[in-house]
Computed example of a mutant assay.
Amino acid sequence: MTDSAEHNIDQRPDGRFFLGSLKAAAKGLSPAYFAMVMATGIVSIAAGAMGMPRIAMALFWLNIGVYLVLWLLSVLRAVWFTRQFFDDMLDHQRGPGFFTTIAGSCVLGSQFILISGNYQAAFVLWVVGAVLWVGLNYTIFTAFTVKEIKPPLDQGITGAWLLAVVAPQSIAALSALLAAHWGQPHKLEFNFIALSMWLWGGMLYIWMMALIFYRYTFFRFLPSDLAPPYWINMGAMAISTLAGSLLVANAADAPYLQSLLPFIKGFTVFYWATGTWWIPMLVVLGVWRHVYKRFPLKYDPLYWGAVFPLGMYAASTLQMERAMNLPFLKFIPQYFLYLALLAWLAAFAGLLHTLARQILVRARK
């Protein structure tokens, strides 16, 4: 830091500087920033399931802090920048990012169960996720339906729309984890909620993916169009696989799940196979974007939406292998966990670098 920057900080009241920084952080907060909670949570869960308890616990505590900070900034943004906040919610490109609040809450809830065994906190987060899902689902899609001025398909839809699939699937997964712990009748009720949300998420994926694939293949596609949330194409299928595998594991405790077991197993493998198909495609498109087209690679909060699918693919493949006794898939989760850890570290380093640079810029003003 230069002497002049240090002088500026010394001359500025600490409270005023802090408040200004807080307002700047709240104003610039991306609606999709809770994807960081999703990514950190699922990497923690996968690490815990694969015998890395220290990494899992460290990421768990970090994720609690990240979750609370993001909620604080989100509330402040809604209060201080109300119009911008709700304009984002009604925007075709930025609006779906709000679904990360649902998935982030439920993934953290799953962490509380699998990492610390705290079912009370997990249930509170389940309630938060369910309330947010009802509110955001019908607010955003109703607004998209009735608004008079709408963008054309190639400018309005992105992979971020599939966060609307990830949200109910995260509720399904957390519901199944809660159901496995509780006694009757709540066991039956929460397994039914899990089944219903799993089916709804699958139907929504089919609807949205048809539009996204159409946009891919029949409209001009620029490197700038291939934003990181397109990895949710795979991540939505990975979390659908995880939720389906948990339903398979719970089938013995719910007669209606037992009767649907072949269907659930078949669609779970269908989801896993679809997600697997997307991986080479997304890698090729990433090489085309950054190598062939030389699109600059720099930190963007949307990159957390690319870390999440890698961790979720590791966790979901492991859960499916255990639920369906598929030992020949055992080698996959470990490799993808290492990829997810590397991607998480890269995104976290980018976040720290960006924060440090923003602090220096504000200090020099």
Rank of each mutant, 00 (worst) to 15 (best):
I113F: 06
I113R: 07
L114I: 10
I115T: 10
I115K: 04
I115N: 12
S116E: 11
G117K: 10
Y119C: 10
Y119I: 14
Q120L: 15
A121Y: 07
A121M: 14
F123E: 14
F123V: 14
V124Q: 10
V124K: 11
V124A: 12
W126A: 04
W126E: 10
V127S: 11
V127W: 07
V127L: 09
V128M: 06
A130S: 08
A130R: 09
V131A: 05
V131C: 01
L132A: 06
W133Q: 01
V134D: 00
V134F: 07
L136F: 00
L136G: 04
N137E: 07
Y138W: 05
I140Q: 01
F141P: 13
F141D: 11
T142Y: 04
T142Q: 10
A143Y: 04
A143M: 12
F144M: 09
F144D: 10
T145Q: 12
K147C: 14
K147W: 12
E148Y: 11
E148H: 15
E148R: 13
E148A: 15
K150G: 12
K150Y: 08
P151Y: 02
P152Y: 02
P152W: 02
P152T: 01
L153C: 08
L153A: 04
L153P: 10
L153H: 03
D154I: 07
D154E: 06
D154A: 06
